[in-house]
């Protein structure tokens, strides 16, 4: 089921699309996950610019899929994930970081297993829907690239949350800053919109609000660097490693939105990483055993995103 109505993509000033609240979306995601036929219409949730209107969610569909579950046995980890999703059917805590429980200081990192990524784009969809982004604002973007043997592979590219971030260095007003956990955030009340950070970022991971952002439903708190929704016109935005989620012990949206478990969120201090299908690993051995590398390592940015290549490819060409 598509979450959105048909839009004409790419035309400047396009009308905002109606957005469903995240908890509604969770229900729909749940139902989608239960759909067993991958070729059924609506099973493909790749964000795109087709103009096919989709019907809204119906009660009959829920009952049909529930019956399908009853027929085929559901194994433990998958069930546990459904429980997790259902538990999360509530508005995600936004912005009020002072209310978040204090925990150990993290050093956030991500591991993306390129062997598993199939380019479905659900990570991008989850991120865009939950942050109320326009379709061209792909904070996490999945590139389709060709390796040396001519085979296609997919590479999701979030913000690298560099330890030595060029974007922070060049911001004239200090609107881009780095938290002590290593996440680079943008204070959109300070940003003057000069786009120097976009010039400096070697990963093209920053996205500008060239027009008014789309309307968002009423949110409990004001926008903040930890949850910049709605965004401000004339300022820059980017992937924030979902600090508003992780602060409450939840996974980032892309991590839990990846059905292949290709995206892991991890802590270099705690030396553990977890993906969205319930797998957790010891981060240092996971990286070592799988020969994880970083993108554009030679630039000295010291990114916090590790890639597990698997096809003998160079990253990013």
């Amino acid at each position: 089921m598509r979450l959105t109505e048909a839009v004409a993509c790419g035309t400047p000033g396009w009308r905002a699309r109606p957005v469903r609240a995240p908890w509604e979306q969770r229900i729909v995601q749940l139902e989608e996950a239960l759909t067993l036929d991958p070729t059924a219409p609506g099973a493909d949730t790749m964000a795109g610019c087709d103009n096919v209107p989709r019907p809204p969610v119906s009660r009959r569909r829920v009952l049909q899929t529930a019956a399908a579950i009853g027929v085929t046995a559901v194994v433990g980890p998958l069930a546990e994930r459904f429980v997790q999703l259902a538990d999360a059917a509530e508005p995600h805590p936004v912005a009020d970081m002072s209310a978040a429980p204090a925990g150990p200081t993290r050093r956030w990192a991500m591991v993306i297993d390129l062997r598993r990524c199939d380019g479905c784009g659900q990570c991008t969809d989850a991120c865009q829907a939950n942050h109320y982004l326009r379709p061209e604002q792909t904070w996490l973007k999945v590139y389709e690239l060709t390796d040396a043997s001519g085979n296609t592979y997919f590479m999701p590219r979030p913000c690298m949350q560099c330890e030595n971030p060029p974007c922070v260095r060049v911001c004239p007003v200090g609107a881009s800053f780095q938290t002590d956990e290593g996440v680079v955030l943008v204070d959109q009340t300070k940003c003057i919109g000069c786009r120097m950070c976009m010039a400096a970022c070697p990963y093209e991971a920053r996205y500008f609000n060239w027009a008014d952002p789309q309307p968002v439903p009423r949110l409990p708190t004001a926008p903040s660097p930890e949850f910049p929704a709605p965004q401000q016109k004339g300022t820059v935005g980017k992937c924030i490693f979902c600090v508003h989620q992780t602060r409450y012990g939840k996974l980032p949206f892309c991590v839990e939105g990846c059905p292949m478990g290709a995206i892991y969120i991890g802590d270099l201090n705690e030396d553990v990483a977890a993906n969205g299908v319930g797998e957790s690993v010891r981060l240092s051995t996971f990286l070592k055993d799988n020969d994880a590398i970083r993108f554009k390592e030679e630039l000295g940015t010291r990114p916090r995103v590790y890639y597990i290549a698997g096809h003998g490819q160079d990253l990013g060409y």
């Binding site: 046995a73 194994v75 998958l78 259902a86």
Partner: peptide
Amino acid sequence: RVIGRAAATTLLVAGLGLFPASAL
């Protein structure tokens, strides 16, 4: 209505999901 739906689905799958876990 939606939470009711979520609860119904939760109960259904949790019941099924606990079965293999309890077996272990």
